[in-house]
Amino acid sequence: MRSNKDSGWSPYLAGSLTGLVAILSVWIGDKFYGVSTTFSRVAGMIEKYFTPERFTSIEYFTRVAPKIDWQFMFVIGIFLGALISSITSKSFKWVSVPDRWRSRFGSSIIKRAFFAFIGGAVAMFGARLADG
């Protein structure tokens, strides 16, 4: 947070509006928020393309098939929504290493990339196991 200009909206307001959007989503589309299943679908798409034989041997991809569904588009939408919000409020900023990481672990992009990648793999394995 460099300046007060970058403080955005109250988290209570933005969070409550997110709750209203969730209600509308369930009402109109019968869909609850979710993200992590899409990562399984994308992993399936990549394996289907590059290693089709291996892909067909994996049971999980028959349960969670590689297809573009509501949640896949939801995930793409999150990217676009954040892009629109940050550009229109001039808070878009290219960041390779977050401030807090830099002050603790230094400014190496490779070091950040290594731990972020491992962290992502661990987090998603856990998320899929917990079915969250």
């Binding site: 955005g8 909206w9 933005a14 969070g15 509006l17 997110t18 959007v21 509308l24 989503s25 589309g29 869909k31 928020y33 588009m73 939801f74 995930v75 793409i76 939408g77 999150i78 990217f79 676009l80 929504g81 954040a82 892009l83 629109i84 919000s85 940050s86 409020s89 808070s91």
Partner: peptide
């Protein structure tokens, strides 16, 4: 829904 969610997360 995703656009609205992403917009609000950023805000």
């Amino acid at each position: 829904t995703g656009i609205l969610f992403g917009f609000l997360l950023q805000k």
